[in-house]
Amino acid sequence: MKHSITLNVNGDTYNLAVDPWRTLNEVLREDLNLTGTKFGCGSGDCGACTVMLDGRAVSSCLTLAVEADGKEILTVEGLAPSGEKLHPIQEAFIEKGAIQCGFCTPGMEIAALDLLRRNPGPKEDQIREALAGNLCRCTGYAKIVEAVQDAADKMKSNQS
């Protein structure tokens, strides 16, 4: 039996009828056409599918859509809602060369956001730890770590 659920994604409300076995990842990508969130493994190992669920980074491939009912979801598409001004994390990723093929990028950015909300001034090893759920095969993580550091600085100076 399908369940009717309400998802609040990037500030928009969607009422949907979904099969209970469908994952949040499938619903975002296939039903809502929000394909920025990627699918790299489906077993929680790569982090490409990371989204924020009620303010915490989770793997959308291991979250049932029914369990996201009524919750606030933030995907990469919601990082810079105006479409004009990018989020400082996005800016930093671009400027620091943290993006190569870009397939890990949406998940990395969300994981970075989760970290910077908990810890606005992370040290390098804390950044590496926080990104340990996100695999990247292109960058060796070095420039991603730099970008997160840079984003932290940007976010701090935006606040002051």
Partner: peptide, 9 residues
């Protein structure tokens, strides 16, 4: 292509 990739587009 950084922007397209950073925004999920």
């Amino acid at each position: 292509d950084g922007r397209a990739k950073a925004t999920g587009a």
